[in-house]
Design a protein around this nucleic acid. Structure first.
Lengths: 108, 108
DNA sequence: CGGATGTCAGCGTCACTGAGATGG
DNA sequence: CCCATCTCAGTGACGCTGACATCC
């Protein structure tokens, strides 16, 4: 799995079933990249992609139970990695760093 | 120009004429990427590449006057961009951020 | 011999562009 | 008609791997 897969799963977990355009907006991704990413996630059974009957331009993408489970694993892995990366800093410094980065434009 | 070009110029400006392996070590780049980058810089007249008579495995790469001039322009541009990116932060916060990032592993 | 150096071809990820078809 | 959405093909930058020839 790549960063794109994680970002899409996290966006769906946060905001519930969404169109691909909405996912791209939330996850900060290009629409064309969202398409390919969801192709993968769907083939792995982590999301479902259904045509929106109310607006047939849209696909309604939803995270599956397996997707939620996988996301939890990834969250745990990410926490471990982040802990390792931030190891040179004290808890106080880590908090300060994350706060400053967050101030630099919502994200990270 | 790409980031690679800047990094190589900066490394040469710092350490003087160097082998490509040394440049890669200083700039944190792979040897194979250094080769292609220096191909470009040399074709632009910003560096020279000469076989080391003392060790014929090595190329001695030197920055030219034009290269130094270009690097100065890039430094100024970079300062402007960094200033724009860090705009949400106070001077105090910027200093803290840079200090914490530096602590995270020499670089940045 | 082992190890370093430079070169070359190739791959994966992230980010983006442009075009096209479909539908509101 | 205009605009949004999705899809597809392609590009560039960065970082890396493996292989090879050369030379210390």
């Amino acid at each position: 799995m790549r960063g794109y897969h994680f970002r899409v799963l996290a966006a769906l977990d946060q905001d519930g079933p969404s169109s691909q355009a909405a996912i791209g907006h939330i996850a900060g991704m290009d629409r064309s990249d969202v398409t390919a990413t969801i192709d993968n996630l769907a083939s792995w059974g982590l999301v479902t992609r259904v045509l929106d009957p109310a607006d047939r331009r849209r696909n309604v993408v939803s995270i599956t139970d397996a997707g939620v489970a996988r996301l939890k694993e990834l969250d745990a892995t990410l926490a471990r990695v982040q802990d390792a990366v931030l190891q040179p800093l004290t808890a106080q410094e880590r908090a300060t760093l994350l706060q400053l980065l967050a101030k630099l434009g919502r994200g990270f």
